[in-house]
Amino acid sequence: MFLHPEPMHIPDGFLSTIVAIVFWAISIAAVAFALRRTGKQLGERQVPLMGVLAAAIFAGQMLNFSVTGGTSGHLLGAAIATILVGPWPAVIVMTTVVSIQALIFQDGGLLALGANLFNMAIVGVAVAYFAYTSLRRMLRSEPWGLLVSGFVAAWASIFIAALAAALELAVSGTSPANVAVPSMGGIHALIGIGEGLITVGALAFLYATRRDLFSAQPAGAKGGAAVWAFGLGIALLLAVLSPLASAHPDGLEWVAEQKGFLEAARGPLFRLIPDYVFPGVSNETLATILAGILGTLLVFGVALGVAYLRRNRKAAA
């Protein structure tokens, strides 16, 4: 039940190596900064709180409700973590959730983890923080301000993170921007509504039972201004960049091509099987089939050999 595949988690193989490594570098820097910040500014009490909260977000993802046609709304959690513990600890909490999802449950790849952390733990938290604190301040006098800000923060964190994922795929040359952006954006605009509704329900419940949790506003967190500005910046950037990229996919393709061009320019130094054709066989189709059969035989041969060795060893033991 934890294993409903999440269209937000990019698996391995979908990002080009360069994109994956660049996002790893960004995420490592951001998470390291968040760790320093949390270590400095929060009490020792925060360590068990963050760990258990991460487990709660993980477990909370199984609480779903049916929407329609077999789809269901459920929680991703960046917004509620941000609202409950503030931006820097929320980055750590979401980093924990997303990393364990990748490492243990193969929800998202290991090499792609850098990009997934960037989308969900960094962009998701920053956008949620920006939306929540701004709206809270604007609607300070309204009793329903908390719920509206919570809904918008949850929806925006999902939507903007999805746009980031779509652009990463597009830059990798895996999915053209004019397909990836509208489809990822569209799906997550809907998923975001489910996330928003659950977040609102959770906030209403917590506000009714433990109002003290909201008295220490994350707005007062040190370095909050920087997160706020980053959230605003990344939301604007992605909201502007995605339609542009989607209208002119050539721009992103150009980036990918430049990269591909550099790779191609190195040129093959030598070829084992020239043009995928078997040497010595003139008929191209026949040669391709032969190469395929040879490859399949190779895989099976290795597999059989290993299985045989293992059986022998077992028998001897």
């Binding site: 909370g60 509704l197 329900g201 209403a204 419940f205």
Partner: peptide, 24 residues
């Protein structure tokens, strides 16, 4: 349905927070 699920999520978070106090 969304409200009930939200209440459940809130309840789960509340239990988590209170548990973390005991763990601490």
């Amino acid at each position: 349905r969304a409200r009930v699920t939200g209440g459940m999520a809130g309840s789960l978070f509340l239990r988590a927070i209170e548990r973390s106090d005991r763990i601490y």
